[in-house]
Design a protein around this nucleic acid. Structure first.
Lengths: 346, 346
DNA sequence: TGACAGAATTAAAACGTTATAAATCCGGTT
DNA sequence: AACCGGATTTATAACGTTTTAATTCTGTCA
């Protein structure tokens, strides 16, 4: 059995079981076999059983290409995934959650790189135009994300990681970043901190606004001083973030409490503290969000709250399946709350 | 652009350009158009030009399902990816390297979960049997990996991350873990360390043997004492690793040099040191391999060497494409050397 | 002028599936 | 006995592509 891929001969190398071979072996027609496998009630129950058995014994699996050609359904979902920056552990956990959810369903998960700076709409257009998938998942959603607009218009199934500010509702899964920021402030204040600092993601993302709002409202409520570090975002190179933090620390009244949205930022902050001679727990405190378990192994320990991205991916995938089955988009939203049970105390 | 969402008709709602519509507009037959687009020399050059132009103006893209049905080619590559454990940053960098390499080539990247404990062959069989892809990439290769055996037998294009011990050569990309382990030992010894310790991955993986060999031979060469921590592997829960390390540290003569294969292990080791009252750089040293840049931000700093997994993924993808184009598997191997230029000193 | 080779094109048959419309079967009425 | 209607089944036409085996179109040479 030699499959020479340079050989331009057609496909039928294997004698793969097909509807026709099933038809021959059962004595029914191809049409009947097709319907029987689809459990069409118009086919006699006895016939359905016979066909099902025959299919099982030869291990029949419908040909995806043929079905796709005929029905337009691809059995594919596409995940638009950022390949530039990541929150530590994000990609692994998120992708694992998604692929595990689709396991055994017949859907296959297709990963396409998404670059925030460039044309984010291109890949989506491509998918719509060329019928490359039955559904789309994506991350890093913007407040008025053009992808959401386009997909809503096309009435194409999708679930976004993150909310938008469109009036039309659409399926999403999001982490309650406002609650996280608020809780972070409250905890730092409870420790007696009075000058809080935070670095935000790029403004374009919706969750940036949630973080900002949570931070600002909690900070004002508590009546403490604060700064939002300017000129730098979560996606800035670690060196730039480190520099900004050093600048901030050398000011007259440096912050004594840090809300960190990612693990890398938390580590950079920690080392900036160390470098400036400050001691965590004495001169300043950090409260961070984490997606991976590494903080358990860092000394000194940092207070964190866990964002479960495996579950996020899992829920998004399940929602997308329901949506692809035709369910209305209305109820399909989910907001993960900060998991204070899995909070990590120093 | 008229999209009629109320139209209940099946798939062909869009008037997507097809070979037939191109044929109509150019005046040639479907067969000629098909050949012209394939740049078949039997078609007159003038005709080819005309067809190409027409195709460009309407933005024709061949239907994947139809082509796949006819030719058996899927334009899909499958990545078997471990969803249980990861080396920090591995999944993100590796996957990014792969998807970027396939960008714009027409291939799409399909991710399927791979569980080491369970049936690793199942997904491969499924792909072969149902023609689900034109090529396969996978990681965590075993010395006599059954997937390699099966794929070699089927003469199916693949590239493994990691070598095997089969006599038949096959395409792979690997990191020189033996060189890493050897260099790690040498550097620790150069610092005056005399009792080295190491935690290995599971025995089944080929790179475990490389690590062991590099470690053992360098350690014997230098004539220093050593231990390979037993009862625990790199994939063990961090808590178990921590416990094993604590046990080791409370022995009569605890190690004073640690070779760490992953970042998490390095951090766990570091905190075990701290917990046992030892000081990094004084009582013990750590030399680690890293796939993400976080160590730059950890205090005290840890010596590391960088394994570029983005490049690994990229090279694997490029090799797979060459293999799928029919190139012989012989030359398609690549061994990444430890990047001592990007070594990180404390 | 009439073959005739070579160049250029094309008709038609697949690939495996689903869906439309038509055909067959069968027990029960007239 | 012919007939009806519901229950089953089936022939057939797509979906869009590639490829085999013709077919047509040139200009050239006897």
């Amino acid at each position: 059995m030699n499959r020479d891929l340079t050989d331009p001969s057609p496909a039928q190398s294997r004698d793969k079981p097909t509807l026709r071979s099933l038809a021959e072996v059962t004595g029914f027609s191809v049409a009947t076999v097709s319907r029987a496998l689809a459990d069409d009630p118009r086919i006699a129950a006895k016939t359905r059983a016979k066909v099902a058995e025959a299919a099982a014994t030869v291990g029949y699996v419908p040909d995806r290409a043929a079905r796709r050609l005929r029905t337009g359904r691809t059995q594919v979902v596409t995940l638009l995934l950022n390949t530039e920056h990541e929150f530590l552990g994000f990609t692994h956990e998120f992708l694992s959650g998604i692929t595990e959810a689709f396991r055994g369903t017949g859907y296959s998960v297709n990963v396409v790189p998404d670059h925030v700076g460039e044309d984010r709409l291109g890949p989506v257009r491509n998918i719509l135009r060329n019928q490359l998938a039955d559904g789309i998942l994506f991350t890093r959603t913007e407040a008025f994300d053009p992808r959401v607009r386009l997909l809503l218009e096309a009435d194409f199934p999708f679930v976004s990681h993150g909310r938008t500010e469109f009036s039309t509702p659409h399926p999403y899964v999001d982490f309650d970043n406002e609650a996280f920021a608020r809780a972070a402030v409250q905890r730092l204040v409870a420790k007696g901190r009075t000058r809080l600092s935070m670095i935000l993601p790029e403004d374009r993302f919706t969750f940036t606004q949630h973080l900002r709002y949570g931070f600002l409202s909690a900070v004002r409520e508590a009546g403490v001083d604060y700064e939002i570090v300017s000129g730098v975002t979560l996606d800035s190179p670690a060196a730039a973030i480190a520099q900004a933090l050093r600048d901030s620390r050398s000011s007259a009244q440096p912050p004594d409490g840090y809300v960190c949205v990612g693990e890398v930022t938390a580590l950079v902050t920690l080392s900036a503290l160390v470098d400036s001679g400050a001691v965590l727990g004495c001169d300043a405190d950090i409260f961070a969000k984490r997606a991976s378990p590494i903080f358990d192994n860092i000394r000194p320990r940092i207070d964190t709250v866990f964002e479960d991205l495996r579950q996020t991916g899992n829920v998004m995938a399940t929602m997308l399946m329901r949506r692809m089955k035709g369910e209305a988009p209305q109820g399909l939203t989910h907001l993960l709350l900060p998991d204070f049970d899995r909070l990590h105390h120093s």
